[in-house]
Amino acid sequence: MAITVTIDGRTTSVEEGTTILHAARDLGIEIPTLCHNDAVEPYGVCRVCIVEASDGKGRAKVVTSCNYEVWDGLHVQTGSEQIMEARRTILDLLLSAHPNAKPVQDLAAQYGVTEPSYTGDPEDDCILCGLCVRVCDQVVGVSALGFSNRGPARKMVSPFLDPSPTCIGCGSCVYVCPTRCLHIVDEGNKRVLYKQDRKNVFKEFELLPCLSCGRPFLPREQLEYVRKKFKLPRKLAQTCPTCGGPGV
């Protein structure tokens, strides 16, 4: 069923189940996000995507556009004074805590925040967006990452502490991390996954050689996982993409 929504005075018709973020994109209206990626379920934690939602008459509520689904007759304000002020404060807070996180710097600058109000940790770029955790759980399906501690002490970690027994070293988390604070490097027949710097190694892998060219390319854990999941014969599974293997 199609639903009519009005965003910043412009009306559009979208499918039921569409989020405000996507309805706005349809209209070419940009709402900033830091913890959203269409590949995974929304999480709604960075809070920069807040907007005001109402029925057009009553009082507006502040909601996060990445996970709020539209309904017929919904009115949305993406840049009211209240929203702009709160968004600026949130960006200031994020920039303060993670002064070197590039996407935060860029977005904060767009909102006029170039100097953070408070001091934070220049060597902590993880903004706790949870994209890595969600990708690992929802896309890869091994749930090797999670969070520990509460409040400002919250940290992205591999649960039950490292090294995670379920991590297969696929690097999907590295790929989605918006601040590039996760790293994966291959050194000879070794692969290392770490956060921020080499002091925080999550896991080290032994790389198996390509059966065709002999180049070490595949963590043993990944081979087992791929063979089981896709029922691939060993010969195919252990052939690198360059030589015509499937890759992951």
Binding site: I90, P152, R154
Partner: peptide
């Protein structure tokens, strides 16, 4: 409250800390 905040969302986690 800062100790009891779950730390998931920015305004609560960072706001209470500051």
């Amino acid at each position: 409250l800062e100790e009891e905040s779950c730390g998931k969302c920015t305004p609560c986690r960072e706001g209470l800390r500051r």
